[in-house]
Simulated scan of single mutants.
Amino acid sequence: MKTLKDVYEHHAEMPFISPKYEQELLKKPIAKRQMERTGEGYLPGHIILLWRIQFGTYTTHHPHHKYFYTTYGIDAQKELEQLIEDGLVRIDTAFESVKLLPVMTLKELLQDKEVKGLSKMKRADLEAALQATYTEASLARIFDERSYSLTEAGQELLDKHPEIIAKHPQKKY
């Protein structure tokens, strides 16, 4: 029976192997191309992570998709932290992340501050009223889920590698 070392001996580097997927990766190995770094030193999995973040739906409470482990061979959480450290991704503020909250929650937060006219307000109005009523610190204490955003450098790196995105199964987010 082949070992992981045998299966991946001809790859440019050893992929991250989560114990949860070890048996699966022995039977269906990660493609060699997924372990080849770009000129900037990133793996295709990093580029796919950037691609997912740019949709604005990736959050601090978002579970990482299985394909990061089984198709791209990266530890998604560790690599996300590295992308943040490298200045390619940033964690949004509470005000920037308010888009994650349902409208009813925004209304409840404003009701707590006795803001009037909530029934006529659209989402943009509610968000503006929230900014006028709360400070960043006070809002940050109320909810802890944050969205991620690409920095300019992260967007530039993503834009340089459309060939990696083109090979990834496409779905609308």
Rank of each mutant, 00 (worst) to 15 (best):
K2C: 07
T3H: 04
L4M: 11
K5T: 13
K5I: 10
E9Y: 02
E9D: 08
H10K: 15
A12R: 13
E13A: 05
M14W: 03
I17Q: 03
S18G: 05
K20S: 06
E22A: 15
E24V: 05
L26I: 14
K27M: 11
P29T: 09
A31E: 13
E36P: 06
E36G: 04
G39Y: 06
E40G: 03
E40M: 04
G41K: 02
H46C: 12
I48D: 04
L49K: 02
W51V: 00
R52L: 15
Q54N: 14
Y58A: 00
T60A: 03
H61K: 13
H61G: 11
H62M: 10
P63G: 02
F68K: 05
T71N: 12
Y72A: 10
K78P: 11
E79H: 08
I84S: 01
G87F: 07
R90H: 09
R90M: 11
I91L: 08
E96V: 12
S97T: 06
L100T: 09
P102A: 13
V103S: 11
M104I: 13
M104W: 04
L106I: 07
K107Q: 13
E108P: 00
E108I: 09
L110C: 04
L110F: 04
M121W: 07
D125N: 10
E127F: 07
A128H: 09
T133G: 10
Y134N: 06
S138G: 03
A140C: 09
D144T: 13
D144N: 13
E145V: 15
E145M: 14
S149F: 00
A153H: 00
L157Y: 01
L157G: 02
L158T: 02
P162T: 05
H168F: 07
P169M: 01
K171P: 01
K172A: 14
